[in-house]
């Protein structure tokens, strides 16, 4: 059976797309952990200020306005003491690794083999970050597990696929050069 050749440019475009999405996701997680600091107003139980004009502007009911504060309380109350610093570290390194994966994607488009080879390390790092994040989230309570586990599991699978495809591409190219 004849197989269609793998398009390096097509694969590169897909890597860049996932790299941009991963960068945005990690960046948002970093921002989230910076903003939701322990000991802040929601954790102190300060009631929300649900003014009619603000509710109208945001298209919210009074109950929803109150739940916005509860949402932060939930996040803070269900985070173990180590969770915030681990998430800050993972998302900080994740942003850098995601930007690195963009360079790998660009290298695929232009068929720059040395950079393509470094993609194995880059996707390995992203996969490791997903795995650590998954283990970390699995060690928290049900509220954070419900929020984090599924997206992390999806990213773990995406990075695993990209790692294997990258490895396969490099191996195929090496075999071709040897022949």
């Amino acid at each position: 059976m004849q197989h269609a050749p793998v398009s390096g440019a097509g694969f590169g475009a897909i890597i860049v797309l996932f790299g941009l999405l991963a960068f945005a996701g990690h960046g948002n997680e970093f921002l989230k952990q910076v903003v939701l600091a322990p000991g802040s107003s929601a954790e102190l139980g300060i009631a929300p200020d649900c003014r009619a004009d603000e509710l109208d502007e945001e298209n919210l009911t009074v109950l929803e306005c109150q739940l916005l504060v509860s949402n932060v309380q939930m996040q803070l109350a269900s985070s173990p003491h180590w969770f915030r610093i681990v998430q800050l570290l993972l998302s900080g390194v994740g942003m850098v690794a995601a930007l690195g994966s963009l360079l790998v994607g660009f290298a695929f488009v232009h068929n720059r083999l040395p950079m393509i080879k470094s993609g194995i390390a880059c996707f390995g790092l992203l996969l490791a970050l997903d795995l650590i994040g998954l283990i970390g989230a699995a060690s928290t309570g049900p509220l954070l597990r419900a929020q984090y586990l599924w997206p992390l599991f999806l990213w773990l699978n995406i990075h695993l696929c990209l790692l294997l495809a990258n490895w396969h591409y490099v191996r195929g190219d090496s075999l071709e050069q040897n022949n």
Binding site: G25, N28, L31, L36, I46, E58, C65, V72
Partner: peptide
């Protein structure tokens, strides 16, 4: 532009779930 736009989308979906601004809640 591409990286910034995607970050803005993701972060805006999240930040609108933060408590409405007041003197106490400055999230």
């Amino acid at each position: 532009l591409a990286a910034a736009i995607l970050f803005l989308f993701v972060s805006s979906w999240w930040m609108l779930s933060l408590p409405l601004p007041s003197d106490d809640h400055t999230y």
